[in-house]
């Protein structure tokens, strides 16, 4: 049997909330589209539409440059729970 689909296709949360602009300084809001290792979550898992996924991607990259969100998280950093430090 082929591997079962783990994630359900979802509607776009940003479209539902009618988001026009995402602020890169709002780290709590960005968490939704980041994996636990701070990778950008793909569209097929979050259900974001193309337009909002593009916005999210640029915003996350800005936040990374501003040292608000890490580029990479090593095993050591995962242990110390990086998100609490970022508060």
């Amino acid at each position: 049997m082929a591997e079962r689909r783990k994630y359900k296709k979802r509607y776009c949360k940003y479209c539902e909330a009618k988001v026009d602009f995402i602020d890169y300084k709002d780290v709590a809001g960005l968490r939704f589209s980041l994996s636990e290792r701070y990778k950008i979550m793909p569209r097929r898992l979050t259900g974001n539409c193309k337009r909002h996924q593009d916005m999210v991607a640029t915003v996350i990259k800005r936040a990374r440059a501003a040292a608000l969100v890490p580029y990479t998280v090593t095993r050591k950093a995962v242990v110390t729970a990086p998100f609490e430090n970022l508060k």
Binding site: K6, Y7, A28
Partner: peptide, 8 residues
């Protein structure tokens, strides 16, 4: 209102 990540 920290929404949990979608991945379950």
């Amino acid at each position: 209102a920290k929404t949990a990540p979608v991945a379950e």
